[in-house]
């Protein structure tokens, strides 16, 4: 057991304060009764009430969720496929190039991703709206799914798939009946990650959106330019809550399920 040290306690407090004080202030002020954001005038939930009556915000929220569900679902399918091929296909020429190319968007500046997508959509004459945002979000979130799923597949006992083939499965059936159920937790947490990423993306969405589709982050950003309102604070608080729940769930599913399944699998094998 480590001894308590003032130095450790202080650095921990400072670190967390640095990360979370701005958000906590935002959450607190979302319950402020006053219309002035910086003046505390007592506890109230009126801004949440007004938020619900605000058509524009509700529309934006609806668009955001639609985009997030669609893009994360497509990204999960594509990302899982990519991960499967990269882990399973063994060594084919250009394998390193392929895996590098799948992970590159992780470090690519969003502005560049957004701009390149915008140019593509203009080039092929695609009207910008919900569809283009979905495509754009799929593009950048599928690499996250791919990373999560492939890290699970690396530890997957290949003889399970061979056993499925041996018992009469086609390769696709083997994937559907054996591989997928076993890697499901990783796939789900990949989906949640993609969902959360899509939910709070501003940069790429604003490049690829059109007049018909305004997502919440875009809406908030444009509203804030006219001055911060308590309503925005309330909205942001809700988004923080959703994202927090999403990320925590994703990591819990990955961790717990991975631990449990690793144990199950180890146990299902012969004892060492």
């Amino acid at each position: 057991m480590k001894r308590f040290s003032w130095f450790n306690a202080t650095s921990l407090t400072l670190g967390f304060a640095f990360l979370y004080v701005p958000m906590i202030i935002l959450v607190i002020y979302s319950f402020n009764a006053s219309k002035l954001v910086t003046v505390w005038a007592g506890f109230s939930t009126q801004w949440y009430g007004e938020l619900i009556r605000n058509e524009e915000f509700l529309n934006a929220a609806w668009v955001t969720i639609k985009v997030a569900v669609m893009s994360s679902t497509i990204a999960t399918v594509l990302g899982t496929m990519a991960a499967y091929v990269l882990v399973r296909a063994g060594r084919f020429s250009g394998r390193t190039l392929f895996s590098g190319m799948i992970y590159a968007p992780l470090v690519m500046p969003e502005v560049i991703t957004g701009l390149s997508l915008l140019l593509l959509f203009i080039g092929i004459g695609l009207d910008r709206g919900v569809l283009t945002i979905v495509l754009a979000h799929t593009t950048f979130s599928m690499c996250y799914v791919s990373v999560v799923v492939s890290s699970r597949l690396v530890s997957f006992d290949k003889s399970l798939e061979e056993a499925a083939l041996d018992l009469g499965c086609s390769p696709f059936e083997a994937f559907r009946l054996v591989t997928l159920p076993i890697i499901a937790p990783a796939v789900i947490s990949g989906w949640l990650l993609a969902f959360t990423l899509s939910l709070d993306d501003l940069v790429i969405a604003s490049f690829t959106t059109g007049p018909s589709a305004t997502t919440l982050p875009i809406k908030i950003f444009s509203a804030v330019r006219l001055g911060v309102s308590p309503e925005i604070n309330a909205l942001s608080t809700i988004m923080i809550a959703i994202v927090t729940v999403g990320v925590i769930t994703a990591s819990l599913i990955t961790k717990q399920a991975a631990v449990r399944q690793a144990r199950d699998e180890r146990m299902a094998e012969r004892p060492a």
Binding site: S159, E162, A163, D166, S170, D264, M267, E269
Partner: peptide
């Protein structure tokens, strides 16, 4: 492999961890 009247008992057993004993045999 799936079209051969040949079955294999694997060195690692390769039992499907998500299925019961019954379902493993019925697979």
């Amino acid at each position: 492999p799936n079209k051969r009247a040949v079955n294999m008992m694997f060195q690692s057993y390769a039992l499907f961890p998500h299925l019961s004993v019954w379902e493993n045999i019925a697979f």
